[in-house]
Write a protein that binds this DNA or RNA. Structure first.
Length: 501
RNA sequence: GGCCCCUUGGUGUAACCGGUUAACACGUCGCCCUUUCAAGGCGAAGAGUACGGGUUCGAGUCCCGUAGGGGUCACCA
């Protein structure tokens, strides 16, 4: 008998006439993991691409993991990433509440239904006994599994224990049957023998459901059509399929996404680098860059497009194009994308970012005009990968030059340079309302000619003199942005203070 | 260890239903442009598709096996 004959256990296309509803269901652990961001992004794009709904549901059934402010932070971070949900906390919706901790009575109801059907049962084992059982099984190299001891209790015994208020859990009663087949959109058919499935705890002794019960109940009640989540769930999906079966519910489609990996190919973890979206945000990565990058980890346009915005992503995204193998989170490409996205923003958009950086910096009290800042933006945009680098790479636009790069001095500041610079300062001083950078250029070239030296003899020294550095925008842009007064002042100061020997 | 998943240059991916010298991007290196640094342009190195069999006129694509990696086996999600 072929396992494939049991079509009832496969997720089918019966939902094709139903509106697409997907959910991102994180547990509020305090930060959003980049893998979570990708899961959310794929869910979001899938919903948008199919005119469906994107739901945010908070999986807070572990009381021990409660983290203050985690939900607010999560919502804030998703908002930063531009992933607006249609239903969820704060926003509401017709299928709430969207916090699992507020749905306890619902889970209880379905647990009772399962018990009544004989598909679940009460168990009173102590954690110690379970621990011991597990150890014994491991020793015998058997699969650790609950031994159904509680099923040997008589009805009366169970009743008495419940009456006596003994701590208890509710377990799934897995019975022999045909293979469980998951028809995963990303991976195809994945099958499991029924006897490898453990009698999973459904309701913990504190009355809270486990993930397995809660996610099935909620997905069903919330009308979720596609469960798109990380691959780490693949090996427990059989339990979920069983729950749908026992409860008599239609299956959603499943799509298990490849994992994000550390450089040693283990599951991306905190220990080996930054995994919090918030920390990438703090470091100055743009949301569109992080989305773009993370989208590419396990998916591609298929036509070599690597740089794209959200709308382009949505327009091209399909679950069928999702790759199977895990992907290493390689920060170099993220850096490239972030720089590309920054450069592709208009001067006005960059101005907003730059103002934020200035606000955070020691220049926050300085009066800097939009016009001035925009000149800097245009002069520096090809040289900058993050907004904060406008300050970091060209501080001379914001403060006086206090030191001169020694290597540059050694290379460009010769014995005759002070005289040349003085002559140049004189020439600049005589300029009449310099209108653009070409005025500085012609004056400099004329000066070089009258001094009988090549323009380079002036260009390089004047750059250090006015910026303290050997690199930066074109010198004439530099001089023009600084303005005649500052340029002359800085050159004279440099002539006085740079000593060579 | 059981079960499940995966395997194309250093990294991310492409290669329709088997059909040119396996393509693109990041990174690396070089050249050009630029009297700086970037950005940009051009070019190079880098995989013969984990390995071994098989099917086929032909295999990265199909089949079998092996190896390696990963996930999972909680009163966590």
């Amino acid at each position: 008998m072929s396992p494939y004959s049991f079509d009832i256990f496969e997720s089918g296309s019966f939902m094709s006439n139903t509106d697409v509803r997907v959910r991102f269901a994180p547990s509020p652990t305090g930060y959003l993991h980049v893998g979570g961001l990708r899961t959310a992004l794929y869910n979001y794009a899938f919903a948008k691409a199919n005119n469906g709904k994107f739901i945010l549901r908070i999986e807070d059934t572990d009381q021990n993991r409660y983290v203050e402010g985690a939900v607010e932070n999560l919502i804030n971070t998703l908002g930063w990433a531009g992933l607006q949900y249609d239903e969820g906390p704060e926003k509401g919706g017709d299928f709430g509440p969207y916090f699992q901790s507020e749905r306890l009575d619902i889970y209880k109801r379905y647990a009772d239904e399962l018990i009544a059907k004989g598909k679940a049962y009460y168990a009173f084992d102590t954690p110690e006994r379970l621990q011991q059982l597990r150890e014994e099984q491991m020793e015998k190299k058997l699969q650790p599994k609950y031994d159904k001891f509680a099923l040997s209790l008589s009805k009366e015994e169970v009743h008495a224990k419940l009456e006596a208020g003994e701590p208890h859990v509710v377990r799934l009663n897995v019975e022999p049957g045909p293979k469980v087949i998951i028809d995963d959109i990303v991976r195809g058919k994945v099958e499991f023998d029924r006897d490898v499935i453990d009698d999973q705890i459904l309701i913990k002794s504190d009355g809270f459901p486990t993930y397995h019960l809660a996610n099935v109940v909620d997905d069903h009640l919330m009308g979720v059509t596609h469960v798109i989540r990380g691959e780490e769930w693949l090996s427990s999906t059989h339990k979920h399929v069983l729950l749908y079966e026992y409860l008599g519910w239609d299956l959603p489609r499943f799509a298990h996404l490849p994992l994000l990996l550390n450089s040693d190919r283990s599951k991306l973890s905190k220990r080996q680098g930054d995994v919090a979206v918030e920390s990438y945000r703090e470091k100055g990565y743009l949301p569109e860059a992080l989305n773009n990058f993370v989208a590419l980890l396990g998916w591609s346009f298929g036509d070599n497009t690597e740089f794209f915005n959200m709308q382009q992503f949505i327009d091209s995204f399909t679950l069928e194009k999702v790759h199977k193998a895990g992907a290493i989170f390689n920060i170099e490409k993220l850096n490239w994308l972030s720089a590309e996205h920054l450069r592709s923003r208009s001067a006005d958009e960059i101005l907003i970012l730059l103002r934020e950086e200035i606000e955070k910096s020691k220049y926050n009290n300085d009066e800097l005009s939009d016009d001035y800042l925009k000149l800097i933006i245009e002069a520096m945009r090809e040289r900058v990968s993050f907004a904060f680098e406008y300050l970091q790479k060209s501080p001379y636009f914001f403060e006086e030059v206090s030191s001169y790069d020694e290597d540059v001095i050694k290379k460009r500041w010769k014995a005759e340079t002070p005289d040349h610079m003085s002559a140049l300062a004189d020439a600049f001083e005589k300029m009449d309302n310099p209108g653009d950078k070409h005025d500085y250029e012609s004056v400099l070239r004329a000066t070089a000619e009258s001094l009988g030296v090549g323009a380079g003899k002036l260009i390089h020294p004047v750059r250090v003199a006015t910026s303290g550095m050997g690199t930066g925008p074109g010198v004439f842009d530099l001089l023009y942005i600084l303005g005649k007064e500052k340029v002359v002042e800085r050159i004279r100061k440099a002539v006085d203070s740079i000593k060579i020997g």
